[in-house]
Design a protein around this nucleic acid. Structure first.
Lengths: 200, 200
DNA sequence: CTTCGACTATTCCGTGCGGAATACTACGTG
DNA sequence: CACGTAGTATTCCGCACGGAATAGTCGAAG
């Protein structure tokens, strides 16, 4: 009953709705756009299911075959699976763990670039975040129009709030960089700032 | 010249200061408390250095031996290493990539638990985040007292802003859960909410 | 004076992730 | 009606991560 990884939580939550075979979980996750919140890849999903089965959180409840299609193994959640889901959700909600996002590392080392360059880069980032925020907003509007209960999109609201905060911080920091309130001497060897766009 | 991982960025940034052997990088990272921002483990660091060397971003600049201690391989950053550092920093600052944090997954599945239980769990989380915020604040005060330039602790400021935003969202959401504005019917099988503290 | 623990410096190995490969079917299209 | 492309369902394999192991030295304490 060790801590489940996010994909296992999603899978287990689906099986808490009804029995399913892995590929159906995969389709449902994509259909419900869970891939925006969890890293969904078929390989990892099958692996996660395998582990859940090994740990007794789910059990094979039959093998179907439709026409000449490959066999599909249907899994059902077990009592201890429901327990594992509950306990993992409790942990994920109640605890606060550092997940080491990359951006703080980059800001921490930003003094290796000239301050003006950093201001420009943060501007780019801000623009992309604004686009993302717009995406979330239109999504939320669509959903509100459809009358979907708000508890179904709590995570979108959360993400929206975080995105707003980052945008706020970026704007303040960019302003300080531009008016010289915040500055530093960049090392010369790296200072040869290319005007190149970011390589994608 | 593929995108460097965060630990490689830290390592390369150290070598941009002066040549060093891996273990010295390791010590410096811990001494400067970079382990709060980057996942620092000796094994991964040696691996990262190995890869940097293979890619020509750093070069062996000698092998020392002090007394009968194990040999230490000293590395020096190369011109293309400085390039890789700059280009990776530019990417990390300017782009905005989803890193799939775990908490949104948990909120997304929170409707599997009873709303009152979720309110309690979010309260716990909020308490832990407040502790963390206090830690950041005292750290920032110490640093300000020492007269350290602000650009050296930009990432702490960023983290502080994010933490404040999350706390804000949590408080609003907890309030809505408590006054019933936000609610749902939890599935019965999982609803058997244990009053147990989180297993750590 | 010897033993124990802490530090120095690095290697190793199990585990898990995820992109790619596989293999077969159904469907549309010229 | 041959052919290509999209969908179904799953397996496989390489590589990166990080905790543990290794192997030596130095200092302190009993």
């Amino acid at each position: 009953m060790s801590r489940l990884n996010p994909l296992a939580v999603s899978a287990l939550a689906l099986l808490a709705e009804r029995p399913m075979h892995p590929y159906e979980m995969y389709q449902l996750m994509l259909q419900r756009r869970e891939d925006r919140v969890v890293k969904v890849s078929a390989g990892s999903l099958y692996r996660a299911v395998e582990r859940l089965a090994a740990d007794g959180d789910i059990a094979e409840s039959g093998v179907e075959r439709e026409g000449n299609r490959p066999e599909r193994t249907v899994y059902t959640i077990t009592a201890s699976g429901r327990d594992a889901l509950r306990s993992t959700l409790e942990q994920m909600l109640g605890e606060f763990v550092n997940e080491f996002p990359e951006f703080p590392v980059a800001i921490g080392e930003a003094h290796n670039l000239p301050p003006e360059r950093v201001a420009d880069l943060l501007d780019e980032r801000a623009a992309r975040i604004r686009d993302f925020a717009d995406l979330l907003d239109t999504g939320l509007r669509h959903i509100a129009a459809k009358g979907v209960a708000r508890y179904r999109v709590l995570n979108v609201h959360y993400t929206r709030a975080m995105v707003a905060a980052e945008l706020d911080w970026l704007e303040r920091t960019i302003a300080e960089l531009r008016d010289g309130e915040l500055t530093w001497a960049a090392p010369e060897q790296l200072a040869a700032a290319s005007a190149d766009p970011i390589r994608t």
